[in-house]
Amino acid sequence: MAMTSLKDIYLDQLQDIWSANTQSLSVVNELGRAAQDKKLSEALIDGANGISDGIAELEKLCSDHGISPSAEHCKGMEGLVKEARAHGLSDEITDPDVRDAAIIPQYQRMVHYALAGYGTLVAFANRLGLDGDAAVLQKCLDHTYDGDRRMTEIAVSGGVNKDAA
Rank of each mutant, 00 (worst) to 15 (best):
A155G: 14
R109I: 00
L89E: 13
G32F: 01
A125F: 02
K82W: 02
G117E: 05
D37P: 06
A101D: 02
G117N: 12
E59W: 01
K139E: 15
G88P: 09
H87I: 02
L31E: 09
S90N: 14
E72W: 13
A56W: 04
L121S: 12
T144V: 00
A71Q: 10
E78P: 03
V27Q: 06
S90Q: 12
D91V: 08
R127I: 07
V81W: 08
L80Y: 08
M151V: 02
Y145F: 09
L89I: 14
H73D: 15
G129N: 08
L137A: 10
A48S: 13
A48Q: 10
G32I: 06
Q13W: 13
L130M: 08
T22A: 06
I104E: 12
L141G: 07
L44M: 14
A134M: 05
A20L: 00
I55W: 01
V28G: 02
G76R: 01
D91N: 13
A86M: 09
D97Y: 06
G119T: 04
D163C: 02
M1P: 13
A34V: 10
S52R: 14
G47H: 11
Q106S: 15
C62V: 07
L14P: 07
D12G: 05
G76C: 11
S90W: 14
D64I: 01
Y145W: 14
F124V: 09
R33P: 00
G147N: 13
L14C: 00
G117I: 11
A34Q: 07
D146V: 04
A116N: 12
Y118V: 05
A114R: 07
Q13C: 04
Y10T: 01
Q36Y: 07
E57Y: 08
Y10R: 02
A114K: 14
P69L: 10
A164S: 14
M110Y: 00
E57W: 06
D142W: 01
M151T: 06
A134V: 08
C62L: 02
G129E: 06
V98C: 03
G50D: 12
G79F: 11
L11I: 08
A101K: 12
A123C: 10
A20F: 00
K39G: 05
I55D: 05
E42K: 09
Q13A: 04
G54V: 09
C140I: 01
D53W: 05
R150K: 15
